[in-house]
């Protein structure tokens, strides 16, 4: 390996690392607020790429059907629980939030199927169609068991991942897609080619991490989320509704998943089941951050990306083995050095 090859590998690693950063931050964000390890996160990333590709091919994306089904289910559940509580006055609002709002972008995608929208609109529509999926899943799957243990929530998440990847096959079919490049230029930094797409990916990762930093430190919602993450009961006593906090966390997570999906779509062929491995590698990054620290998560995910690049060069058949086996020293190190808080006691 010479310096030139090392440089190319490093850039490739940083580009995939940046994708992992976005997803890992989403993992930590959702986990901190809801205690859910949201395994289907990677699937949503893949669905974004597939949605974008469908829109590019002037087809109606399979996500439209998926969102419609989820929205109807969530609405029925919400209306039923409101009716049981006797809070009939809240039903119109529930109909708006759970049925109308998610279906608006889906309806637009359905109506514009067959016409090629300009790129910015297309990206925006993709994000808008994808956004409701995670919050709706939260309403359907997690809200009824919101107070369960972390382990139960994890098991449900794994089951949900399999359901989602099955639905992905149903709605998108078995073929892989690849979208057009968003940027098409290559610059040379110290004689090493750097693609515009890699720069775009890195830039987006930095930009969205910074936005999240601003959100958590300078907005009321952000502070409310932060408070929920630190102490649920305390936050509730302060008048923060944990359900709302969960929904916001899932929405933010969806934005990150959608952005990473859009960024990865032109780089690689994405299949309905591609998301899982991407999610799993990001999860390694999130573990390095102990599922709490955003900066360490970002550094950890970047490390995973770079390690993956070099591991693939040194011994490609064992690439994944190398990436996942760094979990062992990381976990050992964490369990020796950290005073870890026990899971909240039942009050």
């Amino acid at each position: 390996m010479n310096a030139q090859i090392a440089a190319i590998l490093a850039i490739d690693g940083i580009a995939s690392g940046a994708i992992y950063v976005l997803i890992a931050i989403g993992f930590v964000l959702i986990f901190a607020v809801t205690r859910i390890i949201f395994v289907p996160f990677g699937d949503i990333t893949a669905f974004t790429a597939l949605t974008l590709a469908s829109l590019e091919n002037k087809q109606m994306p399979g996500t439209v059907g998926m969102v419609a089904v989820l929205a109807v289910m969530a609405t029925l559940m919400e209306v039923f629980s409101l009716w049981r509580k006797g809070a009939l006055g809240k039903i119109p609002a529930a109909l708006f939030f759970y049925l109308a709002l998610p279906l608006i972008p889906a309806a637009i995608a359905w109506a514009t199927a067959g016409t090629l929208l300009p790129t910015p609109l297309r990206l925006l529509l993709t994000v808008a169609v994808i956004l409701p999926i995670a919050p709706l899943l939260n309403r359907i799957v997690y809200q009824p068991i919101a107070d369960a243990t972390v382990l139960l929530l994890l098991i449900v998440s794994v089951a949900l991942h399999f359901a989602m990847s099955g639905l992905g096959l149903l709605f998108f079919g078995p073929e892989g897609v690849r979208t057009q490049s968003l940027v098409d230029f290559t610059t040379f930094i110290a004689g090493t080619p750097v693609s515009g797409q890699a720069m775009l990916i890195l830039g987006s990762a930095i930009f969205f991490s910074f936005l999240l930093y601003l959100f958590f430190n300078f907005t009321l919602y952000g502070k409310a989320l932060h408070a929920t993450a630190i102490n649920r009961t305390g936050a509730r006593l302060m008048g923060i509704r944990p359900q709302q906090a969960c929904t916001i966390a899932f929405l933010l997570g969806s934005v990150l998943a959608a952005v990473s999906g859009i960024l990865i779509a032109p780089v690689n062929t994405i299949f309905y089941d591609s998301g899982f491995l991407i999610g799993l590698k990001s999860f390694v990054g999130a573990i390095i951050g102990g599922m709490v620290s955003f900066p360490v998560t970002a550094i950890g995910s970047m490390f995973v990306g770079i390690l993956e690049g070099f591991a693939a060069f040194l011994s490609s058949p064992f690439k994944d083995v190398i990436v996942f086996s760094i979990l062992i020293p990381v976990l050992l190190w964490r369990s020796y050095t950290l005073v870890h808080a026990e899971e909240e006691d039942e009050e």
């Binding site: 190319i8 590998l9 490739d12 690689n268 991407i278 591991a311 693939a312 060069f313 490609s316």
Partner: peptide, 21 residues
Amino acid sequence: TNERYARTDTSVTAQALKVVA
């Protein structure tokens, strides 16, 4: 060379570099 990748991998840059080298 005997380089490998998985269907769901995100990049084969490293493997391709090894082939080129």
